[in-house]
Amino acid sequence: MVQPESLKTAGTLVAKEGHALLAGGTYLVSEKPAAVHTLVKIDTLLNAGIETTKVGLEIGAATTLQQLVDELGEGNWAKLAESATASCPSRQLRNRRTIGGEVARGRANSELYLVLMALNTELDLAGDGEDPVSIRKWDGNSVITDIRLKALPFGFQRFALLPSAPAFVAVAAANRDNALDIAVGGKADEVHTGTLGLPVNEADLSAFAVEAASIFTEDHYGTVDYKRHLIQVAVNRIGSEL
């Protein structure tokens, strides 16, 4: 384990083969990837706080999911806190799991990640004066320092066997200039994103749902067609809320 003095050095180190960033460690230590021989510890270099800005929120990458729950649990951003709990029902894990790690991991069954995708969140990356990058365009190769969210109306829906079980279909959407930016995930390898006009046109939604359902396979949760149907239900519910 190495503890670099700056994020710039951390970025250089992690580009080397066999090196991985360590902040919360909940994914990395659990998986113990054989290819990793050196951990680059960055938790003390990163900001772990939430600030309200003119346009929304700025969240330090080392902010834990439990901090989101504690600090945003009531008020305008309560749904973001809810999405953090849905993504990670274990408080023990939420006490360690960071929002930066959640973005870097990009789990399709993380409601928090889907919400950040729907909100078209911007990421500040370690480096010399680089501009923020959209979460949808981030290549995954640099150290995230801050996460910037715009205060847009948003919502999410999840379908799971139990409230504390991972969702097999989850949908998040944000209302941006009378259009719905949507992110669809769940038990899948990738997240599907798209945009629909508001009010939602059933034909457009139907076409979107067919495309989005292609990320799923048939399993014990249901057929692809059933999951397509759930996507439509979720988008309609979120659309009517927003």
Binding site: M1, L22, G25, T26, Q92, N95, R96
Partner: peptide, 12 residues
């Protein structure tokens, strides 16, 4: 804070 000790490396 309650945490899982199986996910914490002593060196951290």
């Amino acid at each position: 804070l309650a945490v899982n000790s199986c996910l914490l490396l002593v060196n951290s």
